[in-house]
């Protein structure tokens, strides 16, 4: 760490150009600095993007949706009146992250790219994430591990905003080293360990997240982010859920956090349609539907030795959240 260089980038183009191997992007530093101190990453150069003009901008309109710069701080997103009014699930997810001090410096881009909180990985024990050949957690204390999409690494993705953004069908704009940009859906941004072991995203070397866009389609639609934690504050989710209603067809988009190595989007096609008739909603039918949906959502989940509670918890959370719309 002594020979660590520091560069203040003035544009994303410039930043991407500096991201040769051995360079790391520094924004808020709330994840990177502990990783540095624990020796889990050893970059030779830090490229600071916090001063790039416009990198922290937040613009929200009903027509245009939301455009949020990668270096926008979670506090600012959570408090932004437009975000709160039109995308309350995102505001709630940002507000639920860490502590106020962390949200005051942590950025959205950094939050989406943060590394897993797996006890083993963070303790410096050799594992797939740190270049090792096995998953010690799978054979050890597995109560925090994934119930969906796990293997060969089972660490869950820790982000809250990613879950809300996934349900909101957000897009990510990525700047490449050659200066070009590409856009991808958040669903395609994340990958499973079966695809890629060293990272949780499909971000390639020399690529940097520049902006997050939330489509106008869901602006102002009924939506909610719910998070279950052990402690009342400063905790990652045991399980979290984002539910966002499509306005026209009135179907929910549901994403889960804390259950899989990536933020987990449910396949809407596999879920039954909600019982809505012209006369409104029948609470009993709605409840039955919510229970059925929760069951469908967790189909294919698999418990290890001691994380089975997450299946029940996720079902209950989905059901509970959907029941909020039992009556119009």
């Amino acid at each position: 760490m002594d020979s660590l260089g520091f560069h203040r980038a003035s544009s994303f183009e410039e930043a991407a150009g500096l991201l040769h191997s051995g360079a790391a992007v520094l924004a808020g530093g709330t994840d990177l600095v502990p990783l540095l101190k624990d020796g889990l990453v050893k970059p030779s150069l830090l490229v600071f993007i916090g001063d790039i003009p416009g990198a922290a901008s937040i613009s929200v309109t009903r027509r245009g949706g939301a455009r949020i710069g990668a270096a926008a701080k979670l506090t600012d997103i959570a408090n932004n009146p437009g975000v709160r009014r039109l995308f309350p699930a995102l505001a709630e997810a940002c507000r639920s992250v860490g502590t106020l001090q962390i949200r005051n410096v942590a950025t959205l881009g950094g939050n989406l790219c943060q590394r897993p909180r797996c006890w083993y990985y963070r303790s410096g024990i050799a594992c797939f994430k740190s270049g090792g050949e096995s998953c010690p957690a799978r054979d050890g204390l597995d109560e925090a591990l994934a119930i969906l999409g796990g293997g060969p690494c089972w660490a869950v993705h820790p982000s809250d905003p990613a879950v809300a953004l996934l349900a909101l069908d957000a897009k990510i704009t990525i700047r490449r080293a050659d200066g070009s940009v590409r856009e991808t859906s958040l669903a395609d941004f994340y990958c499973l360990p079966s695809d890629r072991l060293d990272r949780e995203t499909r971000l390639d070397a020399g690529e940097i997240v520049e902006r997050i866009t939330v489509p106008a389609r869901y602006a102002g639609s009924p939506q909610r982010y719910a998070k279950v934690t052990q402690r009342a504050a400063w905790d990652f989710a045991l399980v979290s859920a984002a539910v966002v209603w499509e306005k026209r067809r009135f179907r929910p988009r549901i994403a889960l956090g804390g259950v899989a190595p990536r933020p987990w989007l449910l396949d809407t096609a596999r879920l039954s349609d909600p019982p809505v008739s012209r006369r409104g909603r029948d609470p009993t039918a709605w409840e039955l539907w919510a229970i059925r949906t929760a069951e469908q959502a967790l189909r294919g989940s698999r418990a290890l030795s001691s994380n089975g509670y997450k299946i029940e918890l996720a079902k209950n959370l989905i059901r509970r959240t959907l029941l909020e719309w039992r009556r119009v």
Binding site: G29, T30, P34, Q101, N104, V105
Partner: peptide
């Protein structure tokens, strides 16, 4: 803790509380 986990090192940066153990001096 020096890892942003306890809040003991809180200072105000431009009036906002931050954890001084996570903010690089250069920032």
């Amino acid at each position: 803790c020096e890892l942003g986990e306890c809040g003991t090192c809180t200072v105000l940066l431009d009036g906002q509380p931050v954890l001084s153990c996570l903010v690089l001096g250069v920032a």
